[in-house]
Write a protein that binds this DNA or RNA. Structure first.
Length: 597
DNA sequence: CTAGGGTTAG
């Protein structure tokens, strides 16, 4: 796994010498150690280092710390670090970066402080390492503190320092992006990366116009610059602008093509996505993944499945990203067959041990209604994480097994897993399905009191649904009014749905007045209201709503159900008579209904 | 330090 630098660098092939001095061989091993991901090999080299009494050497220690960190073995990394009585700035930097990479931000900062206490001066490498640790959280004040530090000691000469500062600022919300722009404007020297980094920040913050302005001002654009803006337009659904930019690009690479295909797929324009896919010169796994997932999300099982086979035939081997993406897409539209095909392949590879892949499999089976399969994979899984539990709880809850879901929740606690905000969405959903209103309210209170999870708007939505479905509309309405977060259209819509079930026009009209204030474009709410008026015989009300829908040019798309038969997904709506054998189908439904009675 | 696909969420 470790290749010598001689092999890699020489243009003339060298015959392997008959004898290499052990010292020379050892040096070669050390020089590549920080890139090694094989833990047992590192341990072996570590033993050799101890034998050669090199464990006090700061340079050797730095290599080892980096290697152990790459294998996520921080305890070993720290034990090596602690062997060095007076660590150099370089060694401190390596340890800070190691903590940052293993998402232990507070330890990274503790190491930085320790470095200062020991009188070791930070250098230009220290700050990019430290800034990497900030990425997990979006603490603007922390980044400002580091900024002040850099200002004080002046490390601007190394362009890496301001560039990482811009990048980290951009990850701290909209205020951070403003700070990043200010810093960028004040820079005397900028390179392409500086420009690309600030433009990325603006694009991610949705400031497309400002991003475009800077892009136009850029002295030299590389392919990355073009791709950043292209992605901005694609993610915003502005495919016409993206297409125009794509046409103007002096050079395009796999990323440019993939970005376009992804944009068209997201926009539901699979034909356009396919045209570009067929046209693109050299494809790697990413465009294949995008196009297959795109078809799968749209329920186009035949196309997705055919392309999946073609991808394998072309000699490409799916990676973790491909597998997860296709499974998620299959879950979304219930493509059990495609999901099972991917599963069969996973079983033959190392991915069957991957937590991420297994989670995606469980979710796929659960969403396709195969709860038994989901459960058996879940129960056999050795490396469960919080997401595994959340998926399984949610899966059971959504399919009407509220009690089972709650039982799983208590098992989760017994096995020592700390629930998070998503867990409680599943739990509250389970209570709704099991009709356990008061238990649901208990869980809702308990999540903040015992787990310090502050309820988000989604949690309020669940509780309002819980109360509303049971007809406790007054309580639900009161909760909306006293919730600390601004109720959004989903909250009001949930409440309106409950009014519809219980034909409560009084609360409903109150809700509608709030909905209109929010100026939502969700046509579903209007048709809900019109249904309420219709059932209470208020035909004037119905007419008013219909008129309002017409005025705002809202059309309610009817809800579709789908069923997978053979290799096709069949979609149908309520009172659908489009099928050639529609009469026979309805006859059968009636017969089945009678049988059930 | 910068670009494309990636598990849970009414």
């Amino acid at each position: 796994m470790l290749t010598s630098s001689a092999e890699a660098g020489m243009s003339v092939p060298v015959r392997t010498p008959r004898w290499v001095s052990p010292r020379r061989m050892f040096e070669q091993k050390l020089s590549d150690l920080h890139r090694c991901t094989n833990l047992s090999h590192i341990k072996q080299v570590h033993a050799q280092i101890l034998k050669a009494s090199l464990h006090g050497d700061a340079h050797v220690a730095a290599k080892l710390v980096a290697a152990f960190s790459l294998c996520r073995h921080m305890a070993l990394a720290v034990s090596v670090f602690d062997q060095i009585p007076e660590p150099t700035a370089h060694l401190y930097n390596i340890l800070i970066r190691a903590y940052a990479q293993n998402s232990e931000a507070s330890r990274a900062f503790a190491t930085f402080l320790q470095m200062q206490r020991n009188g070791v001066f930070a250098d230009n490498f220290t700050y990019p390492c430290l800034l990497r640790a900030c990425c997990g959280q979006t603490s603007l004040s922390l980044v400002q503190m580091i900024h002040a530090h850099i200002e004080k000691f002046g490390f601007w000469a190394d362009i890496f320092v301001p560039n990482s500062l811009i990048d980290t600022y951009c990850k701290c919300g909209s205020l951070g992006v403003r700070a990043a722009r200010k810093l960028f404007d004040s820079m005397a020297v900028r390179d392409t990366v500086s420009w690309n980094t600030i433009i990325t920040g603006l694009v991610k913050a949705g400031q497309l116009l400002e991003a475009r302005q800077l892009f136009d001002e850029m002295p030299e654009r590389d392919t990355i610059s073009w791709n950043i803006l292209l992605d901005g337009y694609a993610k915003a659904g502005e495919m016409n602008a993206a297409f125009e930019l794509f046409g103007e690009m002096p050079r395009r690479n796999v990323v440019s093509w993939s970005t376009m295909i992804s944009g068209y797929s997201e926009a539901g324009e699979m034909d356009m996505a396919r045209v570009l896919f067929d046209k693109m010169p050299a494809k790697n796994l990413v465009p294949w993944t995008i196009i297959i997932s795109g078809y799968a999300k749209k329920g186009m099982a035949k196309e997705a499945s055919q392309l999946y086979d073609q991808m394998e035939k072309s000699g490409l081997v799916p990676d973790e990203g491909t597998v997860i993406s296709i499974l998620a897409a299959s879950a979304e539209s219930g493509l059990l067959r495609l999901g099972m095909k991917v599963h069969a392949w996973v079983e033959r590879t190392k991915f069957k041990c991957s937590t991420l892949v297994t989670n995606a499999l469980i979710d796929m089976y659960a969403k396709c209604g195969r709860l038994d399969d989901a459960l058996s994979i879940f129960n056999l899984m050795t490396k469960k994480d919080i997401v595994s539990w959340n998926i399984m709880i949610q899966g059971l809850a959504m399919h009407g097994n509220g009690e089972k879901a709650l039982h799983l929740f208590s098992r989760m606690e017994e096995e020592g897993f700390e629930p998070d905000g998503v867990t409680f969405i599943g739990v509250l959903c389970a209570c709704t399905h099991a009709g356990l209103v008061d238990e649901g309210l208990d869980y809702f209170n308990y999540m903040e009191r015992d787990f310090r999870i502050v309820p988000q708007v989604e949690h309020y939505g669940c509780v309002i649904d819980l109360l509303g479905r049971r007809g406790r509309l007054k309580e639900a309405f009161a909760l909306v009014q006293r919730m600390p977060i601004e109720p959004n259209a989903i909250i009001w819509g949930t409440l309106l749905g409950a009014c519809r079930i219980h034909n409560n026009t009084d609360v409903a009209s109150e809700v509608v007045s709030h909905l209109i204030k929010l100026d939502t474009s969700d046509s579903g709410n209007f048709s809900l209201m019109s249904n309420i008026h219709a059932t209470t015989g208020d035909w004037d009300g119905v007419a008013n709503i219909r008129r309002e829908m017409k005025n705002t040019r809202l059309q309610k798309p009817s809800g579709e159900s789908s069923v997978e038969l053979g290799n096709e997904v069949h979609k149908f709506t309520v009172f659908d008579t489009s099928h050639p054998e529609s009469d026979g189908i309805y006859q059968m439904i009636t017969t089945l209904g009678l049988e059930l009675e």
